[in-house]
Amino acid sequence: MKYRRFIEFMVLVLAIIFLLPMLLIVLTSFKSEAEILNFSSLLPKNWTLSNYVRLFSNHEEIPIAVWTINSFLYASTTTLIVLIIDSLAAYGLARMNLRFSKTILAIFIATMMVPAQVQLIPTYLILNKFGWLDTMLAIVIPPTANAFGIFLLYQFFKKIPKDLEEAAALDGCSRLRMFWHIALPLSKPALATLGLLVFLGSWNDFLSPLVFLDSSDRLTLPVGIATFQSSYYSEYSLTLAAGTIATVPALLAFLIFQKSIIEGIAHSGLKD
């Protein structure tokens, strides 16, 4: 029992260390600019909402509401598409006895190793050919080619007992219906995990909205936040306040889905 106490104490210490920088972001966003500069304590001496007021009051210059809506729209659309096409592909590979399923899966996984920068210019040229630049499609579609998701869901679908589907087949159930009524409901946790990771990835993506979008009313939060800083100048107060706001939706999503997410990884077949 003493031993367990000790472990909990150690975890607590580690957790505090990890939490401090986060607290620094949130608490500092309630400080005035002068107080930020002369750091003396973690807690603000004079709590102020002025940074948030500045952030939200000047809509033309800082359209943070538009950025947030855009970020949300892009991230959720990407997530939705990934969930659909990845689960379909993973199902096809895992349950349809395809001859080359292992090879195809290996090829998909290998593409995870390609450095993102290699693809930037070619992707730009391709999007330009499609006429997709400066539209939502440029941000939403390319990242949906998500091999990680196929890998994760593949492991999951592999574990579904054969008899379940055989019984369904006897009832005259089509493959698509088996997929929809058996495979998907059984893999909710994996889908939740994948959904969260894709959402977070898209929510925090900086490079592709920066390069593929031009119009300022289509930009996303990370790119918008970056305009508070120039190469030789940083507005700490605005950046930290906006950073706090940008973190909240992601945090909410995690807190709500975290039980499913842990299960998702636990059952994802990483065991063997």
Binding site: F18, I25, Q229, T239, G243, T247
Partner: peptide
């Protein structure tokens, strides 16, 4: 708490 930092974007993390 341990997952929290993952959710902050790199611009803010870098500045911090």
């Amino acid at each position: 708490i341990f997952v929290l930092p993952m959710m902050v974007n790199i611009t803010v993390v870098g500045l911090l």
